[in-house]
């Protein structure tokens, strides 16, 4: 059996300080690493790209992260809803950045699946979903929409850096950042760079589903935010309860056996922004790339989402005025 090229590369040592570190090439872990001399000879000091990132993002008013330790709880769905809702206010310019590199969902949810990205002298242009709603995602750069992106962390980090440095957003009121599940490279990198920009990160919205298996992972994400010094705007419980369209009976599909999102918010002393009930039409609208909020104004889920968006706006926009 032949071995794919991917495996023939030298691996980084376990405690690799990273080529951007002050200790690159000098730490104990570097002894014996094939790249030691390269790392050692790299220019040291703060990342030279930081001023470029600061400059590129200087016209962005608010930066909001959407996080969850758990996958499939609705990070991208909520990101798309939040973006549609914000962009429905014509006075706002909204940008969306999809950091989920191995499984980007936003292009489909925002109905821009087959677009490609344009590069110009001034950098990459986001794909515009609407006049005031732009999106950037790795999906727009793939030769074939089903191509797998089999990348290790370091490669993902450099793409994220490009997203921050080279995307020509123009002036934005909001940059909403969707993340992959977990607490790893993407999360460390985005926090690392954004915390050094003007205004930093306004805060993170955490999403969970009601069952303990999900809360368990979200608890980890909360701890990560606390450690990393990211402000938490609040917690949302998604998929809480399902109303049968036939008999209107409500079932708790994902049972909050330990009190659900509300109890977790109380435990950590963070704001509970609300619960969004399951509505089969949400999934359908996302698959078709349409705005659920516009299509089904009468759904209880629409009310819940708009209420959450209003709370977030009050919180985020209020802080800058004061």
């Amino acid at each position: 059996m032949t071995v794919p090229d991917e495996y023939n590369k030298e691996k980084e040592p376990e405690n690799c300080p990273g080529p951007e570190s002050e200790n690159a090439g000098k730490s104990d872990a570097c002894n014996g690493c094939a790249n030691q001399s390269i790392c050692e000879s790299l220019p040291k000091g703060p990342d030279p790209d930081i001023p470029l990132i600061q400059d590129n993002l200087s016209q962005i008013q608010h930066k909001v992260l959407v996080l969850s330790g758990k996958g499939g709880v609705g990070k991208s769905t909520f990101t798309s809803m939040l973006s549609w809702a914000l962009a429905s206010d014509e006075a706002l310019e909204v940008g969306v950045m999809d950091l989920d590199i191995c499984g980007p969902s936003l292009p489909k949810m925002l109905g821009t699946e087959n677009e490609i990205i344009h590069q110009s002298n001034s950098g990459w242009s986001p794909v515009y979903v609407d006049d005031n709603l732009g999106l950037i995602s790795i999906q727009f750069m793939l030769p074939d929409s089903d191509a797998a992106i089999i990348w290790r962390g370091s490669k993902k980090n450099s793409l994220i850096k490009n997203f921050l440095k080279d995307v020509n957003w123009g002036p934005l009121d909001y940059l909403v950042i969707d993340t992959p599940p977990g607490t790893t490279d993407e999360h460390l990198t985005i926090n690392n760079y954004l915390s050094k920009t003007n205004g930093g990160i306004d805060g993170a919205v955490l999403i969970t589903t009601p069952q303990e298996v999900s809360l368990l992972d979200v608890r980890k994400e909360l701890n990560f935010c606390l450690k990393a010094g990211i402000k938490i705007l609040g917690l949302i419980e998604n998929m809480s309860g399902f109303v049968c369209p036939n008999c209107k009976g409500e079932s708790k599909i994902f049972k909050p056996t330990t009190g659900g999102g509300k109890a977790l918010a109380k435990e950590f002393g963070i704001k509970f922004l609300g619960s969004i009930p399951l509505d089969p039409r949400i999934g359908k609208a996302c698959d078709q790339g349409q705005s659920f909020l516009d299509m089904y104004e009468d759904s209880p889920a629409t009310d819940a989402i708009l209420d959450i968006v209003n709370q977030l706006r009050d919180d985020v926009e209020g802080t800058t005025e004061s």
């Binding site: 691996k11 040592p13 290790r152 370091s154 790893t184 490279d185 999360h187 460390l188 701890n223």
Partner: peptide
């Protein structure tokens, strides 16, 4: 509740 915020090489 504690989180493991590890980059790639450590996970590997």
């Amino acid at each position: 509740g504690s989180s493991v915020a590890w980059r790639g090489p450590k996970k590997t």
